[in-house]
Each structure stands twice: as structure tokens, then as C-alpha cells.
Computed example of a mutant assay.
Amino acid sequence: MHSDDEPDFQRAATTLLQRAVHAGDALIQHWAHLHDRALITSGHAQEYGTQFLLRANGIELCPLRAPESLDERRASVGLPPIAVALNTVRRRYTSMPRAESTLADAFPEAA
């Protein structure tokens, strides 16, 4: 998840984790997080809305593909609606220092 400086490794790990999900050895939610992270790291829009940025003025989603169908994609991998996820993240991070970083760096399982 945190090997942003090694995108090839991150993509390979995503493929391996997807195989583990299909074999019943890993959770699809973990794959969705890693898949989104690999997409963002390689300059593409994320699919499942798991990657956020902590900004001075609050939390914002990293670029997102087809936002109008986001909740459907999230449901397909067992993630809650984005409004629920954003509320949870905002409650957890309102007291954090305002330094800009990715949310996954600070608290990977919340994204």
C-alpha cells in the first residue's frame, strides 16, 4: 500500500491480492484499497473512492472515475456509501494536524 515510489511493485501486488481474493484468501475491500492506491500513484482516477487527501481546509477525495456510479462500485466490494465513509473520516481527522498528506498514509484502514 505504501510503496508509492515503486509503482510496478504496487501493480504486481494488486494483481496478487486480486488472485488471493478470488481464492478466498483475502478480503475484496483490501484489494479495492490497493487497486485505488495503485491507480492514483500511476496518475489515474481511482475506482472505489478509498483514497483521500488531508488538506489545510479539510479532507478531499483523490481524483475519481465516474463519480455518479461510485456508491454502486463501493457496494460491489462491500464498502459503505461514500457519504458514510467521508463522515467517518472527517470525524476521525478533525483533530489531526493540518499537514497535507494522503489519508492512507495517516490511517490506511479508514480510506
Score class of each variant (00 low, 15 high):
30 H>V: 13
96 M>N: 14
54 L>T: 07
101 S>L: 10
73 R>P: 01
64 L>C: 10
24 G>I: 13
56 A>Y: 05
16 L>Y: 09
47 E>A: 10
8 D>N: 13
89 V>F: 05
69 S>W: 10
85 A>K: 07
52 F>A: 00
56 A>V: 13
40 I>G: 00
62 C>K: 06
96 M>Y: 10
20 A>Q: 13
45 A>C: 15
35 H>V: 08
60 E>P: 01
103 L>V: 06
27 L>R: 01
72 E>N: 04
50 T>L: 10
28 I>G: 01
98 R>H: 01
18 Q>K: 10
65 R>A: 11
53 L>F: 12
72 E>C: 07
13 A>I: 07
57 N>I: 02
24 G>V: 11
67 P>R: 14
89 V>K: 04
77 V>M: 05
69 S>V: 15
99 A>T: 14
14 T>K: 08
9 F>W: 11
90 R>A: 04
94 T>E: 03
40 I>K: 04
69 S>A: 05
25 D>V: 12
75 A>W: 07
65 R>L: 11
73 R>K: 14
59 I>L: 11
98 R>M: 07
69 S>F: 07
15 T>I: 15
78 G>M: 03
17 L>G: 01
9 F>V: 14
25 D>I: 12
16 L>T: 06
102 T>D: 05
75 A>R: 12
80 P>T: 05
28 I>T: 11
7 P>I: 13
39 L>S: 00
10 Q>Y: 02
59 I>S: 00
7 P>Y: 15
20 A>R: 09
79 L>M: 12
97 P>F: 11
98 R>T: 02
92 R>A: 02
58 G>Q: 06
23 A>F: 08
10 Q>H: 02
38 A>M: 09
53 L>V: 14
58 G>E: 02
36 D>M: 07
81 P>H: 02
33 H>P: 00
20 A>D: 15
16 L>E: 06
66 A>R: 15
9 F>I: 15
28 I>L: 12
29 Q>N: 11
95 S>H: 02
40 I>P: 00
27 L>Y: 03
56 A>L: 09
75 A>S: 06
37 R>C: 03
24 G>Y: 10
96 M>P: 06
65 R>T: 10
11 R>D: 04
83 A>N: 09
65 R>M: 06
46 Q>C: 05
19 R>I: 09
51 Q>M: 06
